[in-house]
Structure formats: C-alpha cells, structure tokens
Design a protein around this nucleic acid. Structure first.
Length: 729
RNA sequence: GCCACCGUAGCUCAGUGGUAGAGCACACCCUUGGUAAGGGUGAGGUCGAGGGUUCAAUCCCCUUCGGUGGCUCCA
C-alpha cells in the first residue's frame, strides 16, 4: 500500500504504486486533464524546496508527499514548475523541428531557464541558421504541437544505453550520458516525442509535460553561440533560444514585458535623456558624462559624501597612474596583466631597447621582472613565494614604467603608511571617488554597466583586528541608507566565504573565522535575505557583495565590502599598539555604489529615467501660457534658482500643451504652468511628472520653498512631504 | 577575444545596382493660445571607414572600425 499526502494535508491510499497521473485522476477529472507533472518528496517534505519534479507517468513507489503541477497554482499565479516542464518539452520540439529542417544537426544540451530555454547544437560544416529561419522553425514546431504526441520515457541499462549512443555516433550525447553515470545515474533515460523507435527521441533526464499539445504558446527568440562545455578550445555550438508558456496570453504578456524592458534600458534612456555618451573616437567602454548625467552623478556623490563625513571618513585624492613597483608590491602586476591597460614605458627607454635589438619577449620579461632584493623582502614579509624566482633579474636590466591604476587600494595603503599610527588613531578611513581602468574584453562591454574606465566610490579602512566587526557593520549601514533613499529593494546579498578545503587563502584561520562571522552578522542587519557562498571569498579575505538585476534580467554586482589581510602585509603596514610594539592593521575595502558608471546605469533603469526631484538634471520647468506671462515666469525661475533649484523657462512660442509634452518627455519632475491668472494671484499651477492632470494652484512662495525642501530631504517622487503629495492628498 | 546579426539626417527608422526619403528635433515666419503635439517655410546626409567587382555600388564581395545578443572573463 502506498500513502500519498497531498498539499492540503489529506492522505490518499493506493494498493499499488500509482502514477502521478493516476493520483490526479483519483482527485478529479478536471485535475487529471490539466495536470502537467508532479512534485514528490518524502512524506512531510517541503516540496517546493526538496521535492523532485517528475513526469505525470512517474510511478510513486513508497509513501510520499505529492503536489500535482498544473499551469496555474490554485491562487491563479503561474507555476514555475509548469513553465519548467513546458520549456524543457518545447526545447525537444524545437530540436526535432530544426533537425527536420537542417539534416545533420547534432544536438548537445537543451535546458529550460528562468524565462526561456535554449538548445545548443552543432550545425554541419557550411550550414548556419539565421533569424530569418525562425518562422520556418516555428511552423514546423506548430505541426509537432498540433500532433499532440505524448512524451514517452524509456530507460536502458547503462551499458546498452552507451552502446546505443556509440552506434548513433553523437559524441555530445555520449558525453552527457557519461557525465550522468559519473554523477551516479543507475540507468539512462530517453524521451520519445511519440512512440519509441518510431518518432524523434532524445537522451534526456526529463521530466516533460505529458504531450506536445500541452505547449500552449511558444516562440523562437534568438541565436547565439557557445562553446561545448564552455571551453573555447572545444566545438563552437549554435545556441538557439526560445520560450514557451501555457497560454498565448502569457506569451503576449512576456513580449510586452520585453518591450517595456527595452524602453527602460539605460542605453536607450541615456541617449534619449542625454545622460551620457560613448564615442567611437574616445574609445570603447569609456563613458562621457554629459551635463545632465553629470548632475545625477554629482548629486549621488554629494549624498554619499555627506554620509561619509558623518561616519568619520577622510577624503583623499590620488593620481590615475602609479609606478609598476607599486603594483608589483600589491600583486596586481603582472598577475592581472590581461585585464589591465598595458604598462606605460618612457619613450626614450623603449627606443634605446629597440635599437639594441631587444625582443618583445625579453621586453615583457624586463617589465615584469623585479630585483633580487625586492623579491626577498616581499617573500619574507608574506611568508610565501609570492615572487617566483624566474621573475628575478639584475637590477640594471629592469625596465621601469607606470600603470593606469586598476585599483585604488595601493595608493591608499601608501597614504596610510606615510605617517606613524597609534592604536588610538584607528580606524583610519580613507575615501576617494577613484577612477580606475581595466582592460575588459571588447565583447563584454555593455553601456555603463561594464566599461573600461570607471570611478569607484572607494574607501579603505585601516582597522585593528578587534574593530573589524564594527567597521564592516558601519559599511553596511551606509549601503542600507543608500538603498533606502533610492527606494531600491530588489537586490541580492552574497556573503563570500572561504572554501573549507581551499589552500589559496592568506591570513590566520582564526582571524578568518572572526571576519567571516562579522560579515555574516553584518549581512543579517540588512533585513534582506542573503546567501552564504563558500569559495566565493577573495584569497585575501571574506566579502559581502550586492547584486542587482538590470531590465534584461542580467545580474550586476554593485556595492562590495571586503576584508583584506593581504595588502597590509605586502605593504608592511603597521600601527603602534598599547604594548608599544608594531601591529598589523586589517584593511577593509568598500564601495557602496560599486562604480558611479554601473550604479548610474542601474539607477537609470531603476527609475526608468524618472529620477526623484533631488537627482533630476532639471527639477522644475516653468511654462508660461504666452509671452504676456514671461516676466512672471522669469521671476519664478529666479526665485527657484536662488534656492538652488535647477529650473528653466520654456519661452518657446508653442502652446502649453506642446510645452507640457516636451517637459514630460524629458521626465522633469515638476511643471509650473503660469498665466495671467496665476500672476494676478501670485500662485503657480503645478503638474507633477506621471500625473496627467493639473494638480492645482499653490502660492508662489510655498511652491518655491516646497520644492527646495523636497530636494533637501532627498525624497522619492510622490513620497509624503513632497509638493506632489501635498497637492494630491 | 569568439560566433551570429546590425551600421542610411542630431534621434527613431523607410528605401534602391543608375549618387536618397519620412516623422521628431533644429532655424525662420505666422499664431499669444490655460494643461500631453497650432500652421507654414527651410536647412541638414562623401548611406561607419578602406579596398574590390561593375559602364555605374548606399545596395554585391573582402577587410576594418563600432554596436547588439550570447559564450568566455570580471582582482
């Protein structure tokens, strides 16, 4: 007898192991019809977390908990499990369609994802698929769906399965099977779209929807390329993306959201609202902040500057380059050479070297090299061979040069080291909006979110061991203030801990334990879920990262707080303790925004370009009804400007309607319409962005001081205390 | 960096083997209008760059630069 516990707590008993479908049928005919699969687990298990997603035809052998998967949950929400089944199944349908249209295509791997699915395939030599072919593929898929063929699972013992795959000659599927075996599979399973032996089939773990007809709506989305197993030395594959939903409406909804996302894209809005520009001639990944974008950036910097002063930071400035020795000491050169702009070597030196017949390889070695003394000192200090012997060469052979700084920390470490410190002085907190340059691969560049030159809102805290926890907490509270002020709630927190088996970490394990605990405790204070990720720590210390998603769904790391035991050793930093002996400080790196560029890009998307008043490039646009009110309009703008408000008048000879449209397109938070009536009564007629109506009149002075107060308080649009709220209550 | 696609006016985009068009923006004129586009006129482009095929290339081919999507990478 098998006892099945359903989500409502009721228990059903079956004489023999029932399939999920049979359980569904025993509950009701309607459910049996709409069931797509099931989620099973041991009795009482949290199915959403620990349950296994299975086919409708999956037999349940022992007492279990079971939830039947249907397209919609009982509360009407779309079931992610259903989408998973649909997309996984649709990937098979698409693969069959493509193989029909392009004979010789080999299949590799086709998983469902959060919003879509893809299938990697190898096209025979000379054959390519193009976006023009999507319709053809979709038509072929539609036929398969219309045939409503069942997904039929069958299993083979491993030896037989491997033999079958060897006969078929697909190295990719063979490899998939071998990996499944290594992962502990006891047999290999296939899914035929229809009848095994007769219809199309694919080696697959499953699960799938019961039949192709369940796929209500689908679309082939895009083409991309990938490498087999992500290794560029292996075959280059064609990745075909598609998506599937239970209904046409859901697919249309998805398309609408995609469209909306494109409109919110910071690259589109940045151009439309003239916030930034990237110029071919200046270079890829190098952001030119236009006047309007610069205002947003400046406001953000002022905002954070105010908070930093409250928290006892010192502002510093450091140059954009430093000598190679600086980075050889910190370890950033030459180990991260691939992601840096090349070293800057003095022209005359280079000429002399070239004239003397110095080869490129030799040149590189002489730039990368260090003196014996340099190597000895650094290796002694760190207690490890951080400088390998093959980098050591005669001092007179070394070529000196400079590097565009890839990080600010070495400069800040040197500021700390420039004077003696007592334990009483710590923590020393040095902050700088420091611009750094990194050589990102050209294909990775993306608007403002991935660039080659960017300004970190960086700071380095030099603290005593016993101050780490409190200072990490302080850093996080800053992040919290920033996110709260900007109304950003959709972020993920990642606490990077060391890999328990790893050996690459520097520093005392006991200190690591303390620092990791400090990070964990600090993350808890954020009041948002966070994930602990072992192995994600930097080699020099644990860290806390803030990750947000852009409109396209791509994740970007913004803020970061990192504990560092390494640089203080490398730079031989010390302070005098109570015992009058030198002690090693700990460094904390932190950048709440991450970089002004990336944060700016994310912020544009977060607000869809409609910045709160305090951040808006233009805060009030005054719209005189006609030239008769020009003087009154000018008086209003002058009064606003006198209070530091960014305001302008539209003196154009358009009608107010047109002026409103333009101001709305520029996403200006407030419009003040003024005509003879307003002038006579010393009032302004107010409109707020996003509200398609005249909010009413406000006395001249009340409007000016209301706007100024809203800006000073850095309020979000429409929040209590704003002019808009005052007029709409 | 790799693969696919794309590059026409300031912006969004049509279009063609016989040297190019719309809307918006811009300039000027008329209009002085009370809450999301009043009307007219005009200016603006070596069709990303270089090379090739052709009587003729913005269009076809090659190279190159840049962008987009993905892969890889991100101290």
């Amino acid at each position: 007898m098998v006892r099945i516990t359903l989500p409502d707590g009721s228990v059903k008993e079956f004489a023999n192991a029932p399939t999920v479908g049979e359980v569904a049928a025993s509950i009701g005919a309607g459910l049996a019809k709409s069931a797509l699969g099931g989620r099973v687990g041991t009795t009482g298990a949290n199915l959403a977390k620990d349950g296994e997603l299975v086919d409708l035809a999956h037999p349940i052998e022992s007492d279990s908990s079971l939830a039947i998967v249907t397209a919609k949950n009982r509360d009407g929400t779309v079931s992610p499990d259903a989408l998973y089944l649909l997309r996984h199944s649709c990937a098979h349908v698409m693969a069959e369609a493509i193989q029909r249209l392009y004979p010789g295509v080999q299949l590799v791997y086709g998983p469902p994802l959060e919003t879509n699915f893809y299938y990697d395939m190898l096209f025979p030599d000379g054959k390519v698929m193009s976006a023009d072919d999507f319709e053809k593929v979709e038509a072929e898929m539609a036929k398969i769906v219309a045939e409503n063929r069942p997904f039929t699972r069958y299993e083979l013992p491993i030896a037989d399965g491997i033999a079958k795959l060897e006969k078929e000659g697909s190295k990719f599927k063979l490899d998939n099977a071998q990996r499944a075996v290594e992962a502990g599979s006891k047999s290999l399973s296939w899914y035929a779209t229809g009848e095994p032996g007769k219809n199309w089939e694919d080696l697959c773990r499953g699960p799938h929807v019961p039949a192709t007809g369940k796929i209500g709506a689908f679309k082939v989305l895009s083409l991309a390329s990938s490498y087999w197993k992500g290794d560029e030395k292996l075959d280059r594959l064609t990745r075909v993306y598609g998506t599937a939903f239970a209904t046409k409406e859901e697919l249309e909804q998805y398309a609408r959201l995609q469209e909306e996302a494109r409109r919110r894209d910071h690259r589109t809005l940045g151009k439309q609202l003239r916030l930034f520009h990237i110029d071919e001639m200046v270079g890829q990944g190098l952001i030119l902040w236009t006047p309007k974008g610069s205002i947003v950036r400046n406001e953000l910097q002022n905002f954070i500057g105010t908070e930093l002063r409250k928290q006892g930071y010192h502002q510093v400035y450091t140059p954009h380059i430093g000598k190679l020795d600086l980075y050889k000491t910190s370890g950033h050169f030459p180990y991260y050479k691939e992601s840096q702009f090349p070293a800057i070597v003095e022209g005359d030196d280079l000429t002399k070297l070239c004239d003397s017949g110095c080869s490129c390889g030799e040149l590189v070695a002489r730039i990368d090299g260090v003196s014996a003394q340099f190597a000895r000192e650094l290796n002694e200090r760190t207690g490890r061979e951080v400088i390998a012997q093959d980098r050591v060469m005669d001092a007179d052979k070394l070529i000196n040069g400079f590097l565009l700084k890839p990080m600010n920390c070495p400069h800040h470490a040197k500021i700390f080291a420039s004077e003696p410190h007592s334990y009483r002085d710590l923590p020393v907190r040095l902050a700088e909006f420091g611009t750094v340059y990194r050589w990102e691969q050209s294909g990775e560049l993306n608007g403002m979110t991935r660039v080659r030159g960017f300004t970190q809102d960086d700071a380095h805290l030099f603290v005593r061991e016993d101050q780490v926890a409190e200072e990490v907490l302080g850093c996080l509270s800053l992040v919290k203030i920033i996110f709260a002020t900007l109304g950003m709630h959709e972020y993920r927190v990642r606490v990077g801990l060391r890999d328990p088996d790893g050996t690459k970490y520097v520093g005392d394990p006991a200190n690591w334990d303390k620092a990791e605990q400090a990070c964990r405790d600090a993350a808890k204070t954020l009041g948002v879920p966070f994930s602990e990720e072992p192995g994600e720590a930097a080699f020099y210390g644990p860290k806390i990262d803030f990750v947000v998603k852009d409109v396209i769904g791509r994740s970007w790391q913004l803020g970061t707080v990192q504990v560092d035991y390494n640089l203080p050793v490398r730079f031989d930093l010390s302070y005098t303790g109570q015992d009058n002996k030198p002690h090693r400080p700990v460094m904390i790196h932190r950048a709440p925004f991450g970089s002004m560029e990336r944060f700016g890009g994310v912020l544009i998307e977060h607000f869809a370009g409609a910045f709160p008043c305090w951040l808006s490039p233009e805060q009030v646009r005054v719209l005189p009804i006609s030239e008769k009110s020009a003087a009154y309009a000018d008086e209003l703008v002058a009064a606003l400007k006198a209070r530091g408000v960014r305001a302008s008048v539209d003196h154009g000879n358009d009608r107010v309607q047109a002026k409103i449209k333009v101001a709305a397109e520029e996403k200006i938070p407030y419009m003040a319409v003024v005509g003879p009536r307003d002038a006579e009564n010393r009032v302004v007629s107010v409109r707020a962005r996003g509200v398609e109506a005249n909010l009413g009149e406000m006395p001249f002075d009340a409007f000016v001081s209301g706007i100024a107060a809203e800006i000073d308080a850095r309020l979000l649009s429409g929040a209590p205390g704003t002019v808009q709220a005052a007029l709409t209550k």
